[in-house]
Every structure is written in structure tokens, then in C-alpha cells.
Design a binder for these strands. Structure first.
Lengths: 118, 118
DNA sequence: CCTAAGGTACGATAGAAACCGTACCTCCGG
DNA sequence: CCGGAGGTACGGTTTCTATCGTACCTTAGG
């Protein structure tokens, strides 16, 4: 079962849930962004500049977390999101490559004003 | 643009749309089933024994078709669904393997009474 | 020619999901 | 010690989508 912070183990990850998590443009965008960054990059939820309210943002990151795609670690002040790169690669080989090769498709805008943070 | 029957070209396929199509348990099941069959297998929509009405079934197969995942060919009496294996392999390498390795997860029932057709 | 099987089209409905605002918590910096 | 930034929790709204029924089309077969 998931740990206290709601991170499922590799075995608990389920492709249907992952697809559901990735079927939203905003979440897809977050993942496609994370996957193209250097290993172990940590980013706050805010840094993605999603065009939604704080509470909605929490909602989206929760879904990514519960699908096992990201890890959220407490950094005192804020809570950083980190791609679970190795876990995903182990459980769903090929998935990361798919995301890396397919950034947000044109027409799925409202994401263009991506914050330039790191 | 898509052809007359609504099949997108390989270039038009979009991963977000594909994820959306695969994020429904029934559609996921259809794809996971098709992908495990021998090349060029054709099956009628009915043969999957989905626990939904005819019109809903049409709806699901339309979404799969419009995502570019299946091809529907007229066979006079009925309309057969065929996996677009090569197209998917070209456009989204790794995707078919993911599906083949991850059949319907336990707990996603209502699919158990799969028809034993070919 | 008529019927039944397989499908599509359309309109309606119910449930799910995205979204927001408000209230509240925690930590860092001044 | 206080304010603001980053988040979460909760309740309510709206929008989307899975669902169904009905009507209708086409074809194979009796």
C-alpha cells in the first residue's frame, strides 16, 4: 500500500491509472516537462505556471502522485515535485521516452506562458 | 486530415489523445486484448462482449478510431476492428509493449465475462 | 421479400472530473 | 513576532463524458 505521503510502490502502479493521470493536458504538460529535465530535478508546483488556481493545482499534483509518477518531498517551506524516473522506467519501460518525444501538442495551449523557473 | 472513415494519419496522431482514449477501462481492455492477438486479427465490436449497450459500444470504438488506435473496415454485414499495429509502433514506439505487458488490472472487473470469440 | 444481426445517429441523463474560493496550516525572512 | 509564500482540505459549481433508449440504415440468409 501507498506510504504516508500517498506514494504507491512500483508494484502498485497501474497503467490504467497512469493513462488516466496523463490524459489531462495540464498533467501531461507537467510530466512532459519534468521528463526533459536533468535527473533528480526538483520543482515546486507553482514553478510550472499552470493557469489554474492553487487548489486545482494541488488536485492535479495529487493525481500525479497517486499514480506513482511523481514524488513530493517536503522542503520545509514548500513541497517539491520530483519525477520518479527509475520507478517508472522499471515498471513501465518506454513510457518516459514516449513523453520525452511528445511535448505538448500544438493546439493544447493555455500552457504557453510556462514559467521560466528551474 | 483524417480520411472519410475518420482514421487519422500517423502524423496526426497525438499522444494526449491516445492517453485519453486509453484512460477508460473498457477501451483499455479492448486495446490490451487486440494487442495480444496475432497480427491483422479482425474482430467485430460485439465480439468483445463489453457490458454496455450498442450505442455506448459505438461511442467507445469511435474514440479508439479517432485516436488512430484501430482501423474499422466494412465487411458488408458488420464493421470489423483491427489494431493499427504498424502505425502505432512507428508513431509511439513502446506503447504496444506497455499494453501487452499490462492486461486489465485486477479490480477493473465487469470485463471478466469477455466473449470467447476470435 | 422479410427478418435479424451489426452498426450509426441523435437526444437525454447521470455521474465523474476540473475548477474555484475560502479557510487554514507551515515555514522562512524580515 | 508577524507577513507572505507555498500547500492542503473542504464544499460548491460547472463542464465533460459514459451511459442509455429510440429510430434508422445495411446486409446476409432463409
Amino acid at each position: 500500500m501507498p506510504d504516508a505521503e500517498g506514494h504507491p510502490t512500483t508494484e502498485e502502479m497501474d497503467l490504467l491509472t497512469v493513462f488516466k493521470a496523463l490524459s489531462d493536458p495540464l498533467r501531461y504538460h507537467v510530466m512532459a516537462t519534468l521528463v526533459r529535465q536533468v535527473e533528480d530535478t526538483e520543482r515546486t508546483c507553482t514553478s510550472f505556471g499552470l493557469p489554474v488556481s492553487k487548489s486545482t493545482r494541488t488536485h492535479h499534483f495529487r493525481i500525479l502522485r497517486e499514480a506513482g509518477l511523481i514524488r513530493q518531498v517536503d522542503r520545509g517551506n514548500s513541497r517539491c515535485a520530483q519525477l520518479r524516473r527509475q520507478d517508472i522506467a522499471d515498471r513501465f519501460p518506454g513510457l518516459l521516452r514516449l513523453l520525452a518525444d511528445n511535448p505538448v501538442p500544438p493546439g493544447t495551449e493555455a500552457l504557453s506562458r510556462e514559467a521560466q523557473h528551474v
